[in-house]
Design a protein around this nucleic acid. Sequence first.
DNA 1: CGAACTGTTGAATAAGGTCAAACCAGGTGG
DNA 2: CCACCTGGTTTGACCTTATTCAACAGTTCG
Lengths: 251, 251
Amino acid sequence: MKLVVGNACLQHGPESTAPLDCLHCAVREIAVCTALSAPERERLRGIAVTKSFESGATIFAAEEPTAMVGTVVQGTIKCFKLMVDGRQQVVGFLFPGDFIGSPTQETTRLFAEALTPVELCIFPFPAIQRLIREMPNLERRLLQLANDDLDLAQEWMLLLGRKTAQERLATFLLLLAQKMRARGGAGDVPQGQIALPMNRSEIADYLGLTIETVSRQFSKLKAAGHIAIANNSEVTIRNLDGLTAIAEGAA
Amino acid sequence: MKLVVGNACLQHGPESTAPLDCLHCAVREIAVCTALSAPERERLRGIAVTKSFESGATIFAAEEPTAMVGTVVQGTIKCFKLMVDGRQQVVGFLFPGDFIGSPTQETTRLFAEALTPVELCIFPFPAIQRLIREMPNLERRLLQLANDDLDLAQEWMLLLGRKTAQERLATFLLLLAQKMRARGGAGDVPQGQIALPMNRSEIADYLGLTIETVSRQFSKLKAAGHIAIANNSEVTIRNLDGLTAIAEGAA
DNA sequence: CGAACTGTTGAATAAGGTCAAACCAGGTGG
DNA sequence: CCACCTGGTTTGACCTTATTCAACAGTTCG
């Protein structure tokens, strides 16, 4: 486990204070800002700064005072919990367009680590708290996002508490496929092709399994013809219905 | 599994339309309404109705259009997910003062069932959506509640994905004790005494275990002197530090 | 080309699940 | 008042799944 310790955010690293170019932002169609009126978006832009993280960097760590929230512009992030003896549970992977951080909690409860080079559009904590009070549209959007996250977390509780290893991996792949579809838009990514920017260990920590079990289940799904494995970070869904049946425990 | 099927809410059963007596409400100190100003509380009261459910009744079911949200005034509720083959995952128990339902989602994602006789203070869905738009304080409070719920859900993902049976039960008992403390106030409940309004099967479905394993872990904690078991629905914490150490995996 | 990772596969082990029997408390009815 | 029944719970014996431990294969990168 490689942890860059300390409150990395807002302290070092390349941070642009130049005016943001929201009009050409890659995620302007899906991020929080979507819900805002033009003048509101302008105000939000006023407090935003962009920041880059190299692969493996800690974005924030649990127990720290919350320094920021923000939008993922580029890259993949894993959010996770840690136990004192090192056991790890990934609670979510974040992709471009996703919102990161809790806008109401004074203290961070999670660790966030960049799995690839990451670019964030950051809203410093005190500033965003002020803006939330002044912009009901922003607050409404955040409430919606929080409820959606809660829904996904509860779905994952079902997975972790009641599904078999096979069902977990199938569910995971379908979730990624769905996220890609919701994002990538049209022909961006070929039908059923899934990028895996995380390694087996991180998948295992998301699914509550070991790397060996994850690997075995990949092999099994491949042998059954449900997926094809190009390389370790790219798989293709060959049989969507079959995979769905497995994920729901109907197989 | 006893399921009263159908959209039970707002359709039948005793439902009071008389003006609510908020001043003497048992949960007025902790519920959503706490965050509101006097006139705001008055408006919220205007759309509220109380409703009772008998033990075992379905309060709402997954996939239904959301009919209401509300506050638990009395009783205990379990919220859970179901798989097609009947596997069940409890995602939370709700106690007096807790908020029930998602104020942003048009469709219900969970089942909610009364474990004891339950009294709810109900806010019909269209009305609450309107009020949210008009009362920023209400929205702010709901955002806070949603983020707290999300935090708890992620803590539970760690439990379900990475903790042993022993650690799960210890964590569960400590969570209940903490909830009781946060609620019951002063001498209401004797030190470390925990009421268990749910049976072993429901605990098992919350912890991702079987009833047999739950039972064995109860016996083990009792044998180790960490808890005392008065009867099946009441336990006492004898060794808080020991239990905490177990829950955190430090034992 | 070889070192260092990361991932895969196999064999042995353990934790928790399954099946089955015993237990116990609370309610029923003689 | 007490024997009996019933549901939930506990306990025991055995089994299955996933973990652990270990060896091997494939990639990446100096």
